[in-house]
Computed example of a mutant assay.
Amino acid sequence: MNVLEVEIKQAGYTEKKEAINNINFSIKRGEMAGLIGPNGAGKSTIIKAILGLLPEIAGKVQFVGQNRNFAYIPEQPVLYEELTLWEHLELAAAVYGIERNIFLDKGEKLLNIFRLQEVKHHFPATFSKGMQQKVMIVIGLIIEPEIYIIDEPFVGLDPRAIMEFLRFLNEERIRGAGILISTHQLDIAERICDTIILIADGQLVAQGKLDEIRRECHLPGASLFDCFNFILEKQS
């Protein structure tokens, strides 16, 4: 069963209406898909299109799960200066109607795991980029949505935080959540993603399981990095 269906003929900004073209893919329950591409390829534009943030779009994006709810974890954390870390979590719990006892238990657990317990009553606006990213991750995990949309989540995270985050994403996948993750960390994407969506010059140039992409590239046993370079060189 799909939880997200994307069919974009073209989309972009007022000054560039066709930043992306012919982007078609879907995310199933329990599937983790890696959105891969070089800088400027259109990955962030695709995410904005999915979130309904583009002024120009022809096509459709549908959240088709039972509850049609999602969590967005951006590359640049978006936080309220006047709210403490704990108040951010309480706000998310209130918006999504999470029961108080469930929220308290999971909130405390996540803060301990991501080593944020000591600053729970501090203002995240004063945190480092890595700590702010952890706050966004914790908020997303508390929500337990049907689909996660994640943009470059590993920037600024220390190795332990990356390990814990990946562990939680795997648990969420087992729970049945769909996950779309945009990242430049090809080694991580190769290890954790069920499918790969490769974008170049605003277009979808390859998608499928890594073995399928290897066959398309005629590179049996190649790494995602090697396939990535092969496809980009072929496009140029």
Rank of each mutant, 00 (worst) to 15 (best):
S223I: 09
L186Y: 03
I102K: 12
E171T: 11
L180F: 06
E99F: 11
P38V: 13
G208C: 09
G52Q: 10
A93L: 08
E82W: 12
L186C: 08
P77V: 04
P55A: 13
E144D: 12
C227D: 05
A200Y: 13
A11Q: 03
I143V: 12
I8M: 04
I23T: 02
I142H: 01
Q66A: 15
I149F: 04
S182L: 03
T195L: 09
E7Y: 10
L83A: 05
C193A: 15
F154W: 07
Q10N: 15
P145Y: 07
I162D: 01
M1N: 09
G59L: 10
L157Q: 01
E7W: 07
L110K: 04
G30L: 07
V78F: 07
K106N: 10
E233S: 14
L53A: 09
V119D: 04
A92R: 08
I139K: 01
D211I: 12
F225H: 11
V3A: 03
E75D: 11
F228S: 09
F25N: 07
I192K: 05
T45I: 05
E212T: 11
D211N: 11
K134F: 02
K134E: 00
L219G: 04
I73T: 03
S182Q: 02
D187I: 12
Y72V: 06
E75K: 05
D194G: 06
I196L: 06
